[in-house]
Amino acid sequence: CHSECLGNCSQPDDPTKCVACRNFYLDGRCVETCPPPYYHFQDWRCVNFSFCQDLHHKCKNSRRQGCHQYVIHNNKCIPECPSGYTMNSSNLLCTPCLGPCPKVCHLLEGEKTIDSVTSAQELRGCTVINGSLIINIRGGNNLAAELEANLGLIEEISGYLKIRRSYALVSLSFFRKLRLIRGETLEIGNYSFYALDNQNLRQLWDWSKHNLTITQGKLFFHYNPKLCLSEIHKMEEVSGTKGRQERNDIALKTNGDQASCENELLKFSYIRTSFDKILLRWEPYWPPDFRDLLGFMLFYKEAPYQNVTEFDGQDACGSNSWTVVDIDPPLRSNDPKSQNHPGWLMRGLKPWTQYAIFVKTLVTFSDERRTYGAKSDIIYVQTDATNPSVPLDPISVSNSSSQIILKWKPPSDPNGNITHYLVFWERQAEDSELFELDYCLKGLKLPSRTWSPPFESEDSQKHNQSEYEDSAGECCSCPKTDSQILKELEESSFRKTFEDYLHNVVFVPRKT
Rank of each mutant, 00 (worst) to 15 (best):
H106P: 10
L108E: 13
L108W: 14
E109W: 14
T113S: 12
T113H: 15
I114F: 02
D115V: 01
D115M: 04
D115W: 01
S116D: 15
V117T: 06
T118V: 05
T118A: 03
S119P: 05
A120F: 05
Q121G: 04
E122D: 06
L123N: 01
T127R: 11
T127A: 04
V128E: 00
I129L: 15
G131M: 01
S132G: 09
L133C: 02
I134F: 10
I135R: 02
I137T: 13
R138L: 15
G139L: 07
G139K: 11
G140D: 04
G140Y: 08
N141W: 10
L143Q: 14
L143P: 06
L147M: 14
L147D: 00
E148P: 08
N150P: 05
E155N: 08
E156M: 07
I157Y: 00
S158T: 10
S158C: 13
S158A: 13
Y160A: 15
L161K: 00
L161N: 00
L161T: 02
K162H: 13
K162V: 14
R164F: 14
L169E: 02
L169R: 01
V170I: 12
S171H: 15
L172A: 07
L172R: 00
S173Q: 05
S173R: 08
S173P: 02
F174G: 02
F174A: 09
F174Q: 01
R176L: 03
K177P: 01
K177L: 05
L180A: 10
L180Y: 09
G183N: 00
T185R: 11
T185V: 15
L186E: 07
I188Y: 14
N190V: 12
N190K: 13
N190M: 15
Y191H: 10
F193Y: 04
F193C: 02
F193A: 02
F193P: 01
Y194W: 12
Y194I: 13
Y194V: 13
A195V: 11
A195N: 11
D197M: 06
N198D: 01
Q199I: 11
Q199M: 14
N200P: 07
N200W: 02
L201S: 00
R202S: 13
Q203I: 07
L204N: 03
W205T: 02
D206E: 12
D206P: 09
W207F: 12
W207Q: 03
W207M: 08
W207G: 03
W207R: 02
S208L: 13
S208M: 06
K209H: 14
K209Y: 14
H210N: 04
H210A: 05
N211Y: 08
N211P: 08
N211K: 14
L212D: 00
L212F: 14
T213A: 08
T215W: 01
Q216S: 08
K218C: 15
L219C: 15
L219H: 03
F220A: 07
H222K: 00
P225H: 08
L227S: 00
L229M: 05
L229V: 15
L229A: 10
E231C: 14
E231S: 12
I232S: 01
I232M: 06
H233A: 03
H233P: 01
E236M: 07
V238G: 13
V238I: 13
T241A: 12
K242M: 12
K242L: 14
K242D: 14
K242F: 09
R244M: 12
Q245W: 06
N248Q: 03
N248K: 13
N248F: 15
I250S: 06
I250E: 14
A251T: 10
A251V: 09
L252D: 07
K253P: 11
K253H: 13
K253T: 12
N255C: 07
N255M: 07
G256H: 03
Q258A: 15
Q258T: 13
Q258S: 13
A259K: 13
S260T: 12
S260A: 13
E262N: 14
E264F: 07
L265S: 12
L266F: 06
K267A: 09
F268M: 04
F268T: 01
F268G: 00
I271R: 01
L280F: 01
L280C: 04
R281P: 00
W282D: 00
E283R: 14
E283V: 13
P284E: 14
P284K: 10
W286K: 08
P288T: 08
F290D: 15
R291G: 05
R291V: 10
D292M: 07
D292S: 06
G295H: 10
G295Y: 02
F296R: 00
F296S: 01
M297W: 14
M297I: 04
Y300C: 13
K301V: 05
E302T: 11
E302R: 05
A303Y: 13
P304I: 11
Y305F: 06
V308H: 00
F311I: 09
D312A: 06
G313L: 09
N320M: 07
T323R: 04
T323Y: 01
T323V: 14
V324R: 13
V324F: 13
I327T: 03
D328R: 09
P329M: 09
R332Y: 05
S333K: 13
S333T: 10
N334C: 09
P336R: 03
K337R: 05
S338A: 10
S338Y: 06
Q339M: 08
N340D: 14
N340V: 14
H341Q: 13
P342R: 03
P342G: 02
G343K: 14
W344C: 04
L345R: 03
M346F: 04
R347G: 03
R347E: 12
R347N: 09
G348H: 07
L349T: 02
L349Q: 01
K350I: 02
P351L: 02
W352P: 00
W352M: 14
W352S: 14
T353A: 13
I357N: 00
V359K: 01
K360S: 04
T361F: 04
L362A: 05
L362P: 02
V363T: 08
T364Q: 01
F365A: 04
D367S: 08
E368Y: 11
E368V: 15
R369L: 12
R370N: 15
T371I: 15
G373W: 05
A374E: 02
I378L: 13
I379C: 13
I379P: 00
Y380T: 11
Y380H: 02
Q382A: 15
Q382P: 03
Q382R: 10
T383P: 00
T383S: 03
A385M: 08
T386L: 13
N387I: 13
N387T: 06
S389H: 09
V390R: 14
P391R: 03
P391Q: 05
P391M: 07
D393A: 15
P394W: 13
P394R: 06
S396Y: 08
N399W: 10
S400M: 05
S401Q: 05
S402H: 12
Q403M: 08
I404L: 01
L406T: 12
K409M: 02
K409C: 14
K409A: 11
